[in-house]
Simulated assay, not measured.
Amino acid sequence: MLKQAIILVAAYASLVIAHHGRDQPHRAIAKLSGDNVQGNITFTELEDGKVRVQGTIFGLPAGPYGFHVHEKGDITGGCGSAGSHFNPDHQDHGHPNDQVRHVGDLGNVVFDNNNVSTLDFVDTQLALQGPHNIIGRSVVLHEREDDFGRTSHPDSRKTGNAGGRVACGVIGIL
């Protein structure tokens, strides 16, 4: 009887694992917030494995601002708790289209004269499962433009010299 129970439990566990593998999340969302900055960002896994990033952010003056996925989903101490850019491959900072870049390097978002930024782009390195999975991490909006690691500033190849963090949010399953 015990042997049959163990076999049934093992079979059930196999079914749960197999079922879970097929139902990995294919969409995620982050509610971005900071002083005078609010927004929602949606991440959708496409059939080709790329991730579409869409959203709207309100609250900053016109211009470009660095936008990155950071390694931790911890914002208990504000955006500073989110850690560094998500960089599982240990690369230098770069442009989203560069071969060498952090997985979390999403470039700049641009705010218009109405203090609104609308995002809609596809990224080739983000993922919602596997080693580049961003679920449970955070997305961060910075105070300055990202220089893509292309200047002589000491922070350029680490952070894009994008400055402090003005808004952030944890990326969760949608």
Rank of each mutant, 00 (worst) to 15 (best):
N114F: 07
V100A: 10
P61M: 05
R157F: 08
G104I: 01
N36P: 02
T159V: 13
V9N: 10
I171D: 00
H26S: 09
V109E: 09
L128N: 03
N97K: 14
V110E: 14
T124I: 10
I134N: 03
V116H: 05
F86D: 00
D89P: 02
D146E: 12
N97W: 13
L106G: 07
G104M: 02
I135D: 09
L126G: 04
H142P: 14
L15A: 11
Q125K: 08
G172V: 15
V51C: 08
G104L: 02
A18E: 06
S33C: 04
D74H: 06
N161R: 15
I173Y: 02
S33N: 12
N108W: 11
V9R: 06
Q129M: 14
I29V: 15
D146I: 04
D146Y: 14
S152M: 14
A167L: 03
A62C: 01
C168V: 04
K72H: 11
G59K: 09
P64Y: 08
M1R: 11
A162N: 11
A18W: 13
L174H: 12
H68G: 05
V51D: 03
V122S: 01
N36A: 15
Q38G: 03
L32V: 13
H70C: 07
E143T: 15
L46P: 04
M1W: 12
Q38D: 13
D35T: 12
K3G: 11
L141W: 05
K3A: 08
T44N: 06
A127K: 11
V109K: 13
L119P: 01
R144M: 14
A162Y: 03
D89G: 10
G104H: 04
V116F: 00
G39Y: 00
I29Y: 04
D146Q: 11
A28E: 00
A162C: 08
G55P: 01
H19S: 00
G163V: 14
G63N: 09
L46V: 03
L141K: 08
T44I: 10
A82H: 00
M1Q: 09
F43G: 01
N97I: 13
E145R: 12
I41G: 00
E143Y: 04
H102W: 02
G149Y: 02
A167G: 10
A82S: 15
L2H: 09
F58V: 08
V139Q: 02
L128R: 03
S152V: 13
D147P: 08
G78L: 08
L2S: 11
G80T: 07
S81K: 11
Q129L: 06
E145T: 10
